[in-house]
């Protein structure tokens, strides 16, 4: 998996968590964490309102 969440851009809204099909993301208090269930599908990067997430396939 290769997901990079830019914490300086992220506004911890959790939109990415809602669309993650594998449940790999979690909004923990005020930051987003990804676990090994990430399949690099890229939906989180697409939905992010500010473009804080980069996914390499």
């Amino acid at each position: 998996m290769s997901i990079n969440i830019n914490r300086y851009k992220c506004g911890y809204c959790g939109a990415c968590v809602g669309v993650c099909p594998g449940g790999a993301l979690e909004l923990v208090e005020t930051w987003v964490e990804a676990n090994d269930c990430c399949t690099s599908c890229g939906l989180c990067a697409k939905i992010c309102p500010v473009g804080a997430i980069e996914v390499k396939k």
């Binding site: 809204c13 809602g18 669309v19 099909p21 697409k46 309102p49």
Partner: peptide, 13 residues
């Protein structure tokens, strides 16, 4: 199953 497709979510600022 509560996961949403991008077409099922408005992304807002």
């Amino acid at each position: 199953d509560t996961s949403l497709k991008p077409a099922d979510m408005e992304t807002c600022v």
